[in-house]
């Protein structure tokens, strides 16, 4: 796993300072959606080998939610963005 995460607010920090929530690409379904749709949203994950975008929280630092784009195979970190910036960028 990527062991050094460049937090946009705190600088480069060890991964132990963070908590990982998982896939950041999921969009919460409509409340009236079918059970299958909700089951997929809650339980089904791609677990890709390669580029992955996740929600990380810097719990021991600034406590902000971040979107970390990293490679699960090479451990390379491509980008780290504050969650609020990301939400604004994609219009959510």
């Amino acid at each position: 796993m990527a062991s050094l995460i460049p937090c946009p607010h705190c600088g480069v920090r060890p991964k132990e300072e963070f908590a990982i929530r998982g896939d950041a690409s999921l969009v919460r379904p409509d409340p009236e959606s079918s059970d299958e749709t909700w089951n997929d949203y809650v339980h089904i994950r791609a677990n890709p080998r390669g580029r992955y975008r996740e929600h990380w929280q810097h719990v021991a630092g600034c406590r902000r939610w971040l979107v970390v784009e990293r490679d699960t195979f090479t451990h390379e970190v491509f980008s780290v963005t504050d969650g609020s910036v990301r939400a604004w960028e994609i219009g959510r």
């Binding site: 705190c10 600088g11 920090r13 132990e16 021991a60 630092g61 600034c62 406590r63």
Partner: peptide, 9 residues
């Protein structure tokens, strides 16, 4: 800075 010292923030 807020940092982790051992297991304590």
């Amino acid at each position: 800075a807020n940092v982790l010292c051992g297991h304590i923030s």
